[in-house]
């Protein structure tokens, strides 16, 4: 069974005479137990997708199931088995961390004290402090504990590492890997590509509300685009499909996604002193899809 499955999911905002695109014909499937990356820049539709899946906004059309349940009719059941970490954690003013964690557990009708204590210890979170006094990073830690303390089957993380220092980021991903190892599906929405490349098995790239690529991280990194770096000169105009061109005094570097024969011919005609052709990293793949 898929942990997340959408078919033609579409969300438009605004009135009928002035519609703004949120997501359009979005079809996606995330298998149970996957560590799935969801990549796209701001405004691409990542948060709209997540908000639709969690029932905060209603889809304009299309279908979606989370953990096999319909997002329109079984919202509460979905949320009972899901943990959500928002990009910006906001809590009720005047409350202490322990009160927020208890409120979250009570709303789930669960006793999560043991898990909460263990998570707070690992994340070095002081539960006696008031949430109003916490830094952005510490508020994020509270949100992490709220998302994880009830041991959800699905974790939906929206830009999860913002505000966390590198050591905490490491600890956080360690926790996520452990949970994933125990069977939890992780849906990680991020624009930090290294984060997705290091942790996810599969990823989808969203652009202007549509999925433009979805594959294993390995396969996405192995897309037909190559990073070509040369010392010397060559005629780039004859290549055609060149992206992310970076020129230096010595030569240049670019992403090439055309025919290899054409590339080799252009290289042979040029004055090349040194050459390297490598697989692009995920960041370069992202540029390949976006530039």
């Amino acid at each position: 069974m898929d942990a997340i499955k959408t078919e033609g999911l579409t969300k438009y905002y605004g009135s009928s005479d002035r519609l703004t695109r949120g997501i359009e014909q979005l079809s996606l499937s995330v298998e149970q137990g996957e560590f799935f990356g969801f990549i796209g820049p701001n405004g691409a539709g990542k948060s709209t997708t997540i908000r639709t899946l969690l029932g905060l906004i209603s889809p304009s059309s299309g279908e979606a199931q989370v953990l096999g349940m319909d997002i329109r009719t079984e919202k509460e059941k979905i949320l009972a088995r899901t943990g959500y970490l928002p990009s910006e954690a906001v809590f009720y003013p005047g409350m202490r961390v322990r009160d927020i964690l208890k409120l979250s557990a009570d709303l789930r009708k669960k006793d999560c004290r043991n898990d909460a204590a263990a998570l707070c210890e690992r994340l070095q979170l002081d539960v006696s402090r008031k949430v109003d006094e916490l830094s952005f990073g510490n508020r994020k830690k509270v949100a992490i504990v709220c998302a994880l303390q009830h041991e959800p089957e699905l974790l939906v993380l929206d830009e999860p590492t913002g505000g966390l220092d590198p050591l905490m980021q490491r600890e956080f991903f360690e926790i996520l890997r452990e949970r994933n190892g125990e069977g939890t599906t992780v849906f990680l929405s991020s624009h930090i590509l290294s984060e997705v490349q290091r942790n996810c098995t599969r990823a989808a790239i969203i652009r202007e509300g549509r999925i433009i690529a979805c594959d294993s991280v390995e396969a996405l990194s192995r897309s037909n685009a190559k990073r070509v770096s040369i010392h010397g000169r060559m005629d780039l105009a004859s290549l055609g499909r060149v992206k992310d061109l970076r020129e230096t005094q010595e030569g240049c570097s670019f992403l090439y996604s055309g025919e290899i024969k054409v590339l080799l011919a252009a290289l042979a005609d040029g004055e090349i002193r040194d050459l390297s052709i490598s697989e692009p990293d995920l960041e370069e793949v992202f540029l390949h899809y976006y530039s």
Binding site: L56, T82, Y92
Partner: peptide, 14 residues
């Protein structure tokens, strides 16, 4: 207004 709706409504409460 305070941004807490996201916290509240992502819990299993109708």
């Amino acid at each position: 207004r305070d941004g807490t709706a996201e916290f509240l409504l992502t819990h299993p409460v109708s």
